[in-house]
Design a protein around this nucleic acid. Structure first.
Length: 275
DNA sequence: ATAAGGCCCTGACCGC
DNA sequence: TGCGGTCAGGGCCTTA
């Protein structure tokens, strides 16, 4: 699933490809992909726009246009934003096609159809409720402590809550808790100051490593298969310590990695290292 | 305000 | 081999 490092990788890969390119045509095959405005209006508004600046907030891609509009893209589970030659064989599950002025196509493709695209003048209308950006100074151990205080939900569930910190998903939540040696079922409010400081650092470290490895790609064994716009896969999945490693030895102590379900999400942890 | 459960979707996987 | 049932899972919505 694309989380912060995967989305960051997308943005970095797309920036040189899309910078300065103009949209000369567009079509929407699955209207629900367009969250705002409606599909017909989206096509009318996107044609003629020129890509100017690129960013990311949490798991949202921000494709800024010279007019001041921003195309916001959330890939959710299985979305891909790809650039392909005009004569390329159409990717299955292609829901939006934007023709570029260099003849290539910017394609939104998504087998599960969970992903959404917004075209807005003010990104706050989409992003307002997001918590701090984990790699910014705005994300502090003190702030994290304040968010966890009194909470009875599991720390795993709270790490997935985008109001608390933006961009952490199932993979990086499990990996962060392993690094911090915290059991994922612990109530968020039960973590002490030292544990929160350790977790805060672990989140940053794991996300930074994910970015440095161009995100994670999961192949046939997983439902997700994030792939880079240029085609080369990310490599962070090779570095997972616990995620999708149920029954395999913990790289730290050798105990068998366990899988439980928390907040309806698969959760992987080492029962020896994470008490 | 918080927590828990349902919903959207489809491919993969399982059992027969 | 073919078929039906189950499951995963981010974010949003509803319910308690």
């Amino acid at each position: 699933m694309p989380e912060l490092p995967e989305v960051e990788t997308y943005v970095r890969d797309l920036t040189p490809i899309l910078s300065g390119r103009r949209v000369v045509g567009a079509r929407v095959a699955w209207p629900r992909t367009i969250a705002w405005p409606d599909a017909e209006m989206f096509v009318a508004q996107i044609v003629g726009q020129q890509f100017a600046q690129f960013g990311r907030r949490g798991k949202y891609m921000l494709l800024g246009l010279a007019s001041g509009l921003t195309m916001v893209v959330h890939l959710r589970m299985t979305g891909h934003l790809l650039v392909a030659p005009a004569d390329a064989v159409a990717a299955p599950h292609t829901h939006v096609v934007m023709e570029l002025d260099d003849g290539r196509h910017l394609i939104y493709q998504d087998s599960r159809k969970f992903g959404r695209i917004w075209l807005v003048t003010n990104t706050a209308s989409v992003l307002a409720k997001l918590g701090p950006e984990p790699l910014d100074d705005a994300f502090s151990a003190q702030g994290l402590a304040a968010s966890l205080r009194g909470r009875t939900a599991s720390i795993k569930a709270l790490l997935l809550d985008q109001h608390i910190v933006a961009g952490v998903g199932n993979i990086y939540a499990d990996e962060s808790l392993f690094r911090a040696r915290i059991h994922p079922a612990r109530p968020g409010g039960s973590l002490n100051e030292a544990e929160i400081a350790t977790l805060h650092s672990a989140i940053r470290d794991v996300l930074s490593e994910g970015i440095a490895n161009a995100g994670s790609s999961l192949g046939a064994s997983g439902l997700q298969n994030y792939s880079r716009p240029g085609g080369a896969p990310g490599g962070f999945q090779e570095k997972f310590n616990v995620f999708r490693r149920t029954g395999q030895p913990c790289p730290r102590c050798g105990a068998m990695i366990e899988r439980i379900v928390l907040a309806q999400r698969s959760t992987h942890f080492c029962p020896m290292c994470q008490r």
